[in-house]
Design a protein around this nucleic acid. Structure first.
Lengths: 224, 224
DNA sequence: CGGGATATTTAGCCTTGCCTAACTTTTTCT
DNA sequence: AGAAAAAGTTAGGCAAGGCTAAATATCCCG
């Protein structure tokens, strides 16, 4: 695909706006050059260059020195890319027997190669799933993302109350395998037993077993 | 993928060596710059440039003004690319419900995006097929291509002898739909009723129906 | 408020793969 | 054979997307 880079940048802007706790799009928080540089593994100068191009094509609005935000057109491209990514992931797991830790890497490439026709067929064959193997919602072909009920990071859940894992926002195969090893899979029941004062490890109980959980992981685990 | 162009060139050299009736590889017929230019839809100058690069990397041997042939390394890359292409095509038809005329285009892109792991899983899920939707053999993962029994072009088959369609070497969706409309599908029985003297249309009978067949199509239909 | 630290942009360069135009080699045809 | 045609190569450019180094904005803190 010729616009692999373009899609990757827009997706990164989208996710960073989202991470900032804002609606990705013209109204959300702007995203800094350095954040994009880090996320994409590319020099800041390269980011600036690409942002100018994206701004010229009206996919982002760029105020020099103050970051970018997606335009409506940019948001559409980003969401379509995320849709392809998540459907491909789900397909790799459900139809081809991959494990959840292997699929992000593969999908990162396939999301740029798979046509709308192919991805829509995959989605049909899978029975029109609403989420991917990590519990992330699959946007509709019209670009709508169903809001996630009331899932919250494990770090913000009350102590001694049973909750269920609904989503795991983590892309590292190693870390996903580690979490899976603890029994932290989608749908797993768990109880938060002890929350460290500031940013220390959490103590959780999953399937009768107790584990200490690094807060960085815990933040990526959404429960309800 | 970074080496999309490289794979496309090597695949084209492979197919052109093969078309010349020779074993693709160091021993086969050399392929001309202009043949590659036409097949790849790229200027002759561009072909020359790329051939120099491929020669530098030892994927082809290039005698200036006299064409190129694949080295053993080049053959391996070409065959692996063809394997991915054909497995993807078969998968699109068998697992995703595409029709045989739609899949070449899609596979042309996916062949560069799909990892060995993914393509091998597809092949397993399909039940280890030996050929693709057009009857073309799927190379093994070691790069071996089973020789096709004694399939011959329809143009070289004796008159009034029933034969069976084993392969259709044609990539144009329009033409494939046209052939399908005549009943010329894999496995179809047909009889060649009349062969024009030099290069005129053939008269064939398929499933009780008689059709005139342009010799260019007829050459692409292999039978046994 | 001023200045150093940090973030961002600009300038200049590289590689890929493509292009056209001009030149050279090979082929073909009389 | 010898010239015209065809095929192939070289030269010079362009757009994409990267990079580093240098210049400039912004931020933050004493």
């Amino acid at each position: 695909m010729p616009d692999t880079a373009l899609q990757d940048y827009l997706k990164a802007v989208y996710k960073l706006q989202e991470t900032a706790g804002s609606e990705p799009g013209p109204a959300g928080e702007p995203v800094s050059t350095s954040a994009l540089s880090e996320r994409l593994g590319v020099s800041q100068a390269s980011v600036t260059g690409m942002l100018k191009k994206l701004a010229r094509k009206d996919f982002v609005s760029h105020e020099p020195y103050r970051g970018v935000r997606l335009t409506e057109a940019g948001r559409r491209v980003a969401v379509a890319t995320i849709r392809r990514h998540r459907i491909v992931e789900q397909f790799l797991v459900e139809a081809l027997g991959f494990t959840w830790d292997e699929v992000d890497e593969e999908a990162e490439i396939l999301e740029h190669a798979v046509s709308e026709k192919v991805v829509n067929r995959m989605w049909e064959v899978l029975g029109r799933p609403r989420s991917d193997p990590h519990g992330s919602p699959i946007p509709s072909s019209e670009g709508v993302i169903e809001p996630e009920s009331d899932a919250r990071p494990l770090t913000e859940t009350p102590v001694e109350t049973p909750v269920r894992v609904t989503r795991i926002r983590n892309r590292s195969p190693d870390e996903l395998r580690y979490l899976g090893g603890l029994g932290l899979e989608l749908g797993a029941e768990l109880v938060l037993e002890e929350k460290a004062p500031f940013d220390g490890p959490l103590l959780i109980r999953v399937g009768g077993r107790r584990h200490a959980l690094d807060p960085r992981f815990a933040h990526a685990v959404l429960v309800e």
